[in-house]
Design a protein around this nucleic acid. Structure first.
Lengths: 213, 213
DNA sequence: TGAGACTAAGCAAGCGCTTAGTCATTCGTA
DNA sequence: TACGAATGACTAAGCGCTTGCTTAGTCTCA
């Protein structure tokens, strides 16, 4: 599977299809998570009220607490699922590639496209992070370190195979991830470039950044 | 002046030395802005209370309103000054360089270093942006467009001089800015790399990204 | 004496979350 | 198959607290 093709998945399916890690979310819980994702991405965690989330989901304020123990719990579930899907996509793209250059192009393109298509979830994941409780923050942080590790691994493979020239693998991995992650900050559905365009461009730029010349 | 050298300026001086655009801030106002910068960077705009800002500045809650008309006003002043100093530094670095490659290396290094040294102000400027009123947002946005323009200009110069190979100037400019801006997200004073290290590395990576080969 | 910097007290509004209860559906038993 | 009991999803009302900001007044110093 190419990381730069395929129809965009809706936020719905990203949440609904994630029944892993033991907990299956019911339809109302998914609706609440979508409502919270909208609101958090739109106004930020603290500026979003539980009444706002509830009304977007068509419930009374108290209805939220049937499915989630707190507003922070909603943020945590959203963050965890967001990181998991992002990581899974990265691992899959890296594994499916035939060579280190193909792997790098594929993961950076895929990660960039993901942050455009899911820029709401991406913003929550990147910028609302600090409002998690310390325990939840740690759990999400470990997912984040897995993502770092995949990128460093691809760079190391390419250096070993002679395809890449990289002075400093951790710094270069960070710069590549910055390029992709920052898409969530500036992307808007109204702009001219499509998520796939962005992925293609960033994949190309990533290659220029490390390819032996 | 090289953009990658020089002693780090404190947040104090960045605020205090900015007496441009007509308004000179008194000592207490500067103390309040520093307190607000700390708090906003730490907890975000909406999670910060006016009582928190006041007590960090050693004032009673009402003392804030002697110097600023609202909490949003504080955020706006901070955003405006942050954007202005970042832009001024960029323009200066671009102007002082002898060639397009030197200019690019200098502006990306300087911008990256700035976002490490002033990562608090950088986060406010990048992530608390949306909590400004529409009018204030527009004013800050126009400063941001100036920054974009400087980077695109340097890339265009380099393409014309034959030093750079760039397929798509706006996309490449955005990717370069992402590398620098995202430093504010992940930088922490505790890490091994210094702001100058980060600037040097990112300046080097920027050159690889566009240099003719 | 008057102006500016500052505080003590507090107001109205909004916050996260809880309580007590309604209602439709499912279950156990005869 | 009939039927009360239990269950789970949901709401109306509201509690205790915090919020941004104001008011009325004090203090300092030119």
């Amino acid at each position: 599977m190419s990381a730069t093709t395929g129809a965009p998945r809706s936020e719905q399916s990203i949440l609904a299809t994630l029944e892993d890690s033991g907990d299956t979310a019911g339809a109302t819980a998914v609706r609440l998570m979508m409502a919270a994702a909208d609101a958090f991405a739109d106004k930020g965690f603290h500026a979003t009220t539980t009444r706002d989330i509830a009304s977007r989901a068509g419930l009374s304020p108290a209805g939220v607490y049937v499915h989630f123990s707190s507003k922070e719990d909603l943020l945590f579930q959203l963050s965890r699922r967001g990181h998991q899907t992002a990581r899974d996509q990265l691992v899959e793209a890296a594994g499916a590639a035939a060579s280190p250059p193909e792997a790098l192009r594929s993961i950076i393109a895929g990660f960039s496209t993901w942050h455009a298509e899911h820029h709401q979830l991406g913003r929550i994941v990147q910028y609302e992070f600090r409002h998690l409780t310390p325990e939840h923050r740690d759990e999400v942080l470990s997912l984040r370190r897995e993502i770092d590790k995949v990128v460093r691994g691809v760079l190391a493979d390419g250096v070993e195979s002679g395809d890449f020239e990289v002075d400093d693998i951790p710094s270069t991995a960070l710069a590549l991830l910055s390029m992709a992650v920052d898409v969530a900050r500036w992307y808007s559905p109204e702009i001219r470039r499509t998520p796939d365009d962005i992925g293609r461009t960033n994949g190309h730029l990533a290659m220029r950044l490390v390819a032996r010349r």
